[in-house]
Write a protein that binds this DNA or RNA. Structure first.
Lengths: 206, 206
DNA sequence: TTCTAAGTGGTACTGAGTACCATACCGAAC
DNA sequence: GTTCGGTATGGTACTCAGTACCACTTAGAA
């Protein structure tokens, strides 16, 4: 293929970038393998670097710390959720806002369950390591802030923009716990948690 | 006072225990002072130990890690909440369960606000340090588990026992965020978050 | 007074995370 | 193809959190 056509082929990022991508994957793979073998606590960053065939220094260029490697595709997920949420029309009442986030979250649960093996490994890792549970919580709260800011930008009242994402998180966590780490059961459990919230209070007669 | 009356005076714990209590307080005080001066990240455990006039080793005998010292009275709070919650009659519907936790949490918010200065310092510390935010999240989730187990032990259905505490946590966090670290506003904000949840869905006409 | 268990502080270690440096290599421009 | 600039790499050396182990002190009971 003549060189002047090269620019017309978008499906070939420069070598630099491909190498970076490759190194990243190697590190993640190495880390997950070692974590599965020995548990998070008994694996050192040096171990991971060695198996991934990179220097210890390089590990920290790709991941801010040891925990971060266990959340390798969290950023992708956040971006996906943000995008989905932004696509929906603005609302300014609590029930409506929650219904919207419900849609988005349930959709994503399905996607997560698609890569069931990875989901299972990740969940197990997080469930068994307090430090990773903490970090997972941070990720979730970051996500809440994204939803909140998105809603605020669309003129939702502050109380709603703050509360709705937190409630959604509660439903997700409950669903996650109730599904016991089974990716196939996740979507259903989460959706039913959302349903419970809406229905419980609607039918309440005081 | 003759020795044989000593046992009849309950208001005097043995010296050992008093010393322990004292050392603990010294460490907490030293830590909070240093954190306020230089920020959590720029204070080493050695610094804290030195100012508290104990050995570095001793610090770790009182607190499992550096973060823990920032949550010095968390255990007391958990015990208090547990006790309050246990005193209430069993319920097995979501709305009822949430109303119960609401009572308990709102009550405690009042108590927290009472020691306003400490609350402010603690909140600020946590808000400004991601590592402490993570740890705070862990504490909250531990608390959720306490509520959950308490409800399960009283025969509540699992979905309710799991979901209700998570929703309550959502309300608390929302209230906390909306009150902007002001202890005086905390109780009101949290209570109104709970109210929103109940009312939003009750009045919903689909 | 004596004995035991609890508490203390010191030393020495591992491992996470950072700063810095010299080297290697991609990619573009000549 | 050669050269050149910026980027990625891996190594060394450091700080600090956290742990294990030690000898020493001291509260409190016998």
């Amino acid at each position: 293929m003549p060189a002047r056509y090269a620019a017309a082929v978008p499906e070939r990022p420069p070598l630099r970038q491909r190498k970076r991508q490759r190194a990243r994957e190697q590190i993640v793979e190495a880390a997950y393998a070692l974590f599965a073998e020995r548990g998070f606590g008994d694996v050192t960053v040096a171990d991971i670097a060695e198996r991934a065939e990179v220097g210890r220094t390089t590990f920290f260029r790709y991941f801010g710390d040891k925990q971060e490697v266990a959340f390798s595709d969290e950023q992708r997920i956040v971006e996906r959720l943000t995008e989905l949420h932004r696509a929906l029309p603005p609302v300014d009442d609590l029930a409506g806002a929650l219904a919207q986030i419900r849609e988005v979250v349930v959709l994503l649960c399905g996607e997560l369950a698609a890569d069931g093996e990875h989901y299972r490994a990740h969940e197990r890792l997080v469930r068994e390591n307090p430090e990773l549970r903490d970090r997972a919580a941070r990720k979730f709260h970051l996500l809440c802030e994204v939803f909140r800011d998105n809603m605020l930008a669309r003129g939702a009242p502050r109380e709603v923009a703050v509360l709705a994402p937190q409630l959604a998180l509660a439903c997700y966590r409950a669903g996650q716990e109730l599904s016991d780490g089974d990716p196939a059961a996740l979507t259903g459990a989460v959706d039913s948690a959302f349903a419970q919230v809406s229905e419980s209070f609607r039918s309440e007669v005081t």
